[in-house]
Design a binder for these strands. Structure first.
Lengths: 206, 206
DNA sequence: GTTTACATACATTCATGTTTGTATATAATA
DNA sequence: TATTATATACAAACATGAATGTATGTAAAC
């Protein structure tokens, strides 16, 4: 057909990414073909191959869109170093992420893809490692906050920040997996906030 | 070729399952072909199709081999109702599973497949639901044990068994994911036992 | 003799990547 | 400003290479 303007081109690029997300969720990454994505985006494979080299490049575009917000969220939460309630900072961070997932279908689908509709082999194995690196980043930040909490006497004397940080990370990691994967029941979707509060309550001196 | 005895046939069946596990780990479920499995098992596709209808049936055979031991393990751990240390029961259960994973490569690979080398769509979606059902089973059992712990005055007075059970499940779920997925670093593999002890220590009255 | 436990051959479908064609936006030039 | 040249944003066709399932063959077990 005809050549589009730059804006139109960027628009179809986004259309392709959105279509990919929706098809990935429904059919899994490796079972969706370029043709599936193209037809769902109402373009031809030619358009897809013009914007992306292959399927993995589309996947990366998707992943990038979903990861940055989380890191930004944590960095923002870390900024307030003088809060009287560091434990509240962590709690809010967890709750905010859950709320983001609840409200933004796109992010929700992207995480569903990352956690249960993608096989981490070959080129995708590196994606997994990047995710794990992010985890380490999170744990480190959590520890810093827990150290602040310790200074404010929010913690039991025999709890130590490093252990708490790792424990919280594992808790939230588990929660995320359940929240995202359990699409049939609503146990986790409805109670996630309460579970987070319970988790943090275990840490507070009473 | 020639017909084998029943024992021989069962042996090749097992060979196929083992081969499938090893190929699944390396290439992911959907990217491995029946031919990959067959050649790795040193048979032809004919043999595979004789024993299994398709790839998913092999996957199910694999999954069954890995799940039952865990449930048995928990059931066994639950048997001793009169122990003075219920928290120790949970701790041992977690540690035993980690040890099982460490020692048994087959189980380890199977979990790697289930957690990061398989896409849960279509026929596989039901597998995910079965796993989640198992989780509920675990949480329920944990709660029972935490109730025993409460009776033995092992818990803080303001902790309640249901919340602790869910929190422990999410913790261990997260730990399992990290343990299995983090194949390059050894942080989780080396420290899992300690992380479990830390987690349980958060619950004990000091 | 019949069924079993496969191996081999066949037919079909599907997905990929590449190539080619083309109409038009945009930059260059006059 | 009008004209020309070129790069862009695709669509359509092509070539190739799997992968699947099935059908057939076969030798030995029972």
């Amino acid at each position: 057909m005809a050549r589009k303007t730059k804006e139109d081109a960027e628009l179809t690029r986004q259309r392709i990414i959105t279509a990919a997300r929706e098809v990935f969720v429904a059919r899994g990454v490796s079972r969706t073909t370029i043709e599936h994505i193209a037809s769902h985006a109402e373009v031809t494979r030619g358009a897809v191959y013009w914007h992306f080299q292959n399927k993995m490049e589309i996947f990366h575009a998707l992943r990038d869109q979903a990861f940055l917000p989380f890191i930004d969220q944590l960095d923002a939460a870390m900024l307030d170093e003088t809060t009287e309630d560091p434990l509240g900072t962590i709690e809010s961070f967890f709750c905010d992420i859950i709320r983001m997932l609840s409200e933004d279908l796109a992010t929700q689908q992207t995480y569903e893809i990352i956690m249960s509709k993608c096989e981490y082999v070959d080129e995708f194995a590196s994606v997994l490692q990047k995710i794990l690196n992010n985890c380490q980043y999170f744990v480190d930040k959590f520890q810093l906050i827990y150290e602040r909490a310790q200074l404010k006497n929010q913690l039991h004397p025999n709890h130590n920040p490093a252990a708490l940080a790792m424990d919280s990370h594992l808790f939230f990691s588990g929660l995320l997996h359940m929240w995202v994967k359990d699409t049939t029941s609503t146990i986790f979707r409805n109670n996630a906030i309460q579970l987070i509060k319970n988790h943090m309550q275990l840490r507070r001196v009473s």
